[in-house]
Design a protein around this nucleic acid. Structure first.
Lengths: 201, 201
DNA sequence: CTGCCCATGTAAATCGTTACATGATTAC
DNA sequence: GTAATCATGTAACGATTTACATGGGCAG
């Protein structure tokens, strides 16, 4: 059900087409949730059926675009969901499963695994830092749209919740990089001892 | 496909029934992957069809138990998978989505959200620390079974890869707790300023 | 006029959860 | 005897990915 509310939340900042939502999920919003067009379009229909969003066809628009807007019921449904107690999903981490069973593999393969883990999160880190910076310097479109429709007194809180979310992801990425590097250090120490035993001086 | 290889990896340490695999996924192995019986039993059949595991019915066993053992082909298939390049799944984090859109909610609700986030990971942390300790002091059954069938020279590496995996999860849990506490601190600071503005001295 | 992006979808397959069903064994 | 745990499944549903289909607009 999270996709449903991620879409509602997005439309809570600004009306948008399915295409724009999909693009956001593939970029900025993708830090927290993502979905492909084949999932987004049917979900938009379902939300329209529920009366939580409203889609308008612009007759003058040659492309068959539909712009969706959050309804009052949609706002209420979103509010209810975000305030509901979290149900944490089970842990599922293919990287850890691989590492655990890499104990029959050559050092170079284990090294490659950890280096690419670090590289993956360095990538994420760079992306998220750019978005975070855009939020604090007022360049971030989505954020500006959201602030524009809310009283100035609430602006600090609106910005802070998003910054906290990005800061959390940034800290996670930094942790994964540091973890992978520490893991490599510990493995190299083990391998260098093994070598000394194999070829004593 | 990760479930498939998580099962193979488990059976690589010791033969087991579907029930035991399910119990492991709900406990120790659940730190990295999990699955319910309704997914495990069909997968075991599929693995048997592939010739990667072999199930034996013990006629003397009154319960209808089948004990599965990894075949040589299964060992090879697992090896190939763990060494293959990781494909990282998209980020999907319902907690972050909630936090981001909690900016219309009362301070107490946001507080509760972050406190329960910290509580959730304190729980995980405690569990994982206990398992990690069992691995280093030689109490961990699964680990002992795995070590027993491998030459002593490999024992350090076999243990280290598992410790690294748990250490990573432990560090993640610690991070989430610290993040939630920091988030609370920053929010309280914001709210106390807002109060002062509302009720100046 | 060609290639790229905009834009919206459908269909099938895969992965995972929920609900249901059944029966044996063990501890109290 | 009865409740908890052991043990193995099936069926239906929900969430996600992959593959396919179609056509308009815009820049070089």
């Amino acid at each position: 059900m999270s996709l449903r509310y991620a879409i509602l939340g997005f439309l809570g900042s600004t009306p948008a087409t399915g295409y724009v939502i999909g693009r956001e999920f593939a970029q900025g919003a993708g830090a927290f949730w993502s979905a492909l067009p084949s999932q987004i379009y049917p979900e938009l229909r379902a939300l329209e059926q529920l009366g939580w969003i409203e889609g308008t066809h612009d007759a003058s628009d040659r492309l068959n675009r539909r712009v969706f807007t959050l309804t009052a019921q949609g706002v209420a449904a979103l509010q209810q969901w975000v305030e509901a107690p979290m149900e944490y999903p089970p842990e599922r981490d293919a990287e850890r499963v691989r590492l655990i069973f890499l104990d029959r593999s050559a050092p170079d393969i284990i090294r490659r695994h950890l280096l690419s883990h670090a590289a993956h999160f360095r990538d994420k880190l760079a992306t998220w830092r750019v978005i975070r910076a855009a939020m604090t310097d007022g360049t971030h479109r989505q954020m500006r749209a959201r602030l524009a429709q809310r009283p100035a007194g609430e602006h600090d809180l609106i910005l802070l919740t998003k910054l906290l979310a990005y800061d959390g992801n940034i800290a996670r990425a930094e942790l994964e990089i540091a973890w992978a590097e520490d893991a490599l250090t510990r493995l190299e120490a083990l391998w260098s001892v093994a070598e000394e035993v194999a070829e004593p001086i």
